[in-house]
Design a protein around this nucleic acid. Structure first.
Lengths: 252, 252
DNA sequence: CGCTTAGTTGATTGGGATCAAACGTAGTGG
DNA sequence: CCACTACGTTTGATCCCAATCAACTAAGCG
């Protein structure tokens, strides 16, 4: 039993490395020793369940969180009781970057399904970044990536119609899941239609109708939360993603 | 003449400090020596004119830019020739943070009126941040602030109607200008109606009609690009900004 | 097995886009 | 200086996409 526990702990460590640290380390080399130092400040938490909060708006900011398995949504209360879903966070993705500035969380983060979450105390991460330049650089890149992603969302909400939005959402899910080694064409959506609609700036009914339409058009198979993408290429076309190597007619 | 030039140069240095550095230094203390080191890596550029580009999408990322005077818009090409205006940048604000990740600019930055722009070579800033922990912290805060601002925009584009969007835009301009010592109620908009509409996800005509309506309702005086805010409070009400200290009825 | 919540489908409506046209305003060159 | 052009802005008329309203079905759950 004791033996098993040790093995289990090691497995967690390995899993956590693969998942938590890759965002910070993968793109370019931290030496093994630095990875160990980084690994040393990461707190593993017990599994969290649907509806649990990582943090709520207004709370003091202490840590960043990394999704190891499962999924999390972040959302901000809008005036008049409603809320705006700001994002869905899949394994390997980081949560809480927006709270650094005010030292206080402006949004809330709620677990969508049973999930394993790592916690990284931010002040310790900052200390480490001070002494490891490449880690500092990775952190700048991480923050910057979030800004770039937000810009894509601004374009989506500002310029795209309902169909394009849902297609872009599905493509995004597909890409992010496949990046983590999961299927790009067969996955479960852990969020409700309502949450998808909220995120995309659409009514629930519109989302539902579009799922039906995509299915009718042979782009998807949808059964409840289970999605099978049948025609990724067409979906990308709808989402307005231009294939770089394809024929470009309107080169402007 | 030589004398005058020296004075002028010093004035520029002082102006540049007040303006460029405040974003990086103001919130908490860098010691004077560190401010000098930071000041040392900032490049002053000659005035730029309407239509000039700070950078274009696809270019290699080398520097961040800070608006000293004037204004700049950033925009990304959307598929099918259109473009999405990502932001308007007023004095004291930083441009280019989204390019850190890919080491390449994803959007373009175009000067809206005659402007003075400072350039900060990013790799030198990173070096400096490594050796000045409080500067590193300021930079994290800066990036984080951008993410927070983007989240506000997501809420605006996802949940607010045309009227609320334009009101929010005007309030934002008012606040940001007054933060720089300019009037909060009397200012010139350097961007066209078309650019405002693009930014807010609205058609030009809608923006124009709303300006007219706000004027009819006694909220504004508008003459071309000149805006006088007559009723800031009501405008904030429309924008959905809840006054904290006012009576809260629906505390939920 | 009721009860509640999530999801689907249909009917209707409305806000803002689009189309169309007039009107400055700025710039350009004769 | 004024005609000419081009562009930005305003205003009006019409249309359409997606929201809303409404009814129903399917799941989850105590």
């Amino acid at each position: 039993m004791a033996q098993r526990k040790v093995i289990s702990f090691e497995n967690i460590r390995v899993a956590c490395r693969n998942c938590t640290l890759s965002q910070l380390c993968l793109p370019m080399g931290l030496v093994a020793e630095d990875v160990d130092r980084l690994d040393g400040i990461i707190k593993r938490s017990r599994p969290m369940h649907r509806g649990d909060h990582l943090f709520r708006g207004g709370e003091r900011f202490r840590s960043l969180f990394v999704v190891k398995t499962g999924s999390v949504k972040t959302y901000a209360p809008s005036s008049e009781g409603g809320e705006q879903v700001l994002g869905f966070h899949l394994p390997g993705e980081i949560i809480g970057l927006d709270a650094i500035e005010k030292d206080c969380h402006a949004c809330s983060a709620k677990v969508l399904e049973t999930s394993a979450i790592c916690e990284i105390p931010f002040h310790r991460l900052e200390e480490l970044a001070s002494s490891i330049p490449s880690l500092q650089h990775q952190m700048f890149r991480l923050l910057s990536k979030e800004i770039g992603h937000d810009a894509e969302m601004l374009l989506l909400l500002g310029k795209k119609n309902a169909e394009e939005r849902l297609a872009a959402f599905l493509i995004s899910m597909s890409k992010r899941l496949s990046k983590r080694g999961l299927s790009a064409t067969d996955f479960y959506l852990s969020m409700s239609r309502h949450e998808i609609g909220n995120y995309l700036g659409l009514a629930v009914e519109t989302v539902s109708r579009l799922f039906t339409r995509f299915q009718d058009e042979g782009l998807l198979n949808v059964d409840r939360k289970h999605v099978q993408v049948l025609d990724l290429r067409s979906l990308e076309g709808i989402a307005g993603i231009v294939q770089a190597e394809d024929h470009q007619q309107h080169s402007n």
